[in-house]
């Protein structure tokens, strides 16, 4: 069976990201998964092997880390030409999409982004228009280059050899035009990554202040979830932009989405309406969020949320 290249998403703090394991799981239906690590592999190779990576290609060094995206796409394109894979899967993240875009141009090949499923023949399912419609799409020129949205499937282990192969990194000056001079981590504690979390607790304008977001964080921590925010909450300075859920923020698809003081505008729905279960707390019984909530509490979040937090502590 042909190889399927899975471009690994990992972070210094969390190790291999869940979307990587999902991609390895999808890759098995398309061929033999090979993981591609663009950066230092550290100690993640065991995990990649556990989830089915027969081979693990590693391209590391200053030429990869010191510049934005371009060298990674060049190394990946060379690898594609060398192994002629059945497909290339990447994460539907900013960087994953950017690498995919460059790869598509280099190979004059089609690409599909934001897939939530992929069939054995490379047909991808995408949720479009704020999650209101589903399409099935195919790459019609070249091999399937597909970016996969986190939380699309449940990763399952399938131990494989995980043979590591170092790649030689040979990039041109054109790949070194954009230098990365600093990487700054902004604190977010030990919470799971927003797009990968199985529980997301989000606050909106109803939370009323940055200080009050502690309530949202407390509930998220009790449930082991991530914290999200509506745009109104972000624009009002209650919570940082990287946690915004919606049209111009992150798309999340957790098992449970809890919306606190969020009205449920169409642009907010765009980022969360494919969640498995939706729960809302809002004092306005007419709030549109109730139209999609599996369970809704009409009430003041400043009363309901602290009581819920106490109750969870009691039950633990």
């Amino acid at each position: 069976m042909a190889e399927v290249l899975v471009v690994v998403e990992a972070s210094a703090s969390a190790g291999v990201k869940k979307v990587t394991l999902e991609m390895l799981t999808f890759a098995r239906t398309l061929g033999t998964p090979s993981a591609v690590v663009l950066g230092e592999a550290g100690d993640i190779t065991a995990k990649l092997a556990e989830f089915g990576a027969e081979k693990i290609y590693v391209a590391a060094g200053e030429d990869i880390d010191g510049y934005l995206v371009s060298p990674k796409a060049t190394v990946l394109a060379a690898l594609v030409q060398q192994v002629q894979p059945a497909a290339v899967l990447l994460g539907s993240t900013q960087e994953g999409k950017e690498i995919a875009g460059r790869l598509a141009v280099k190979l004059d090949n089609g690409l599909l982004t934001d897939a939530v499923a992929i069939d054995a023949d490379g047909t991808a399912t995408q949720a479009i228009f704020a999650g209101s419609a589903l399409v099935k799409s195919k790459v019609t020129r070249g091999l399937p280059i597909v970016t996969i949205r986190p939380n699309s499937t449940t990763p399952s282990p399938a131990p494989a050899a995980g043979t590591v192969e170092q790649l030689t990194v040979s990039v041109s000056d054109a790949d070194k035009l954009t230098k990365v001079v600093e990487r700054v981590a902004e604190k977010k504690g030990s919470r799971p990554e927003l797009t990968e979390a199985s529980i997301v607790v989000s606050g909106g304008r109803g939370v009323a202040s940055a200080d009050n977001f502690k309530l949202v964080e407390e509930l998220a921590d009790l449930l082991g979830g991530a914290v999200g925010a509506s745009r109104a909450a972000v624009d009002s300075g209650f919570y940082p932009h990287q946690f915004q859920v919606g049209q111009t923020g992150k798309t999340v698809s957790p098992q449970l989405y809890l919306a606190l003081g969020i009205s449920g505008a169409i642009q907010h729905r765009a980022g969360m309406q494919t969640s498995k279960t939706i729960v809302a707390v809002n004092k306005d019984p007419e709030a549109p969020i109730f139209e999609l909530a599996d369970y809704g509490v009409v009430g003041d979040l400043f009363k309901v949320v602290p009581q819920a937090a106490d109750e969870i502590r009691k039950r633990k």
Binding site: S11, T93, Q94, K179, A185, Q242
Partner: peptide, 11 residues
Amino acid sequence: QTDEGYEVVTA
């Protein structure tokens, strides 16, 4: 802007 925070890039 990145998920972890931000990167400073120049060109």
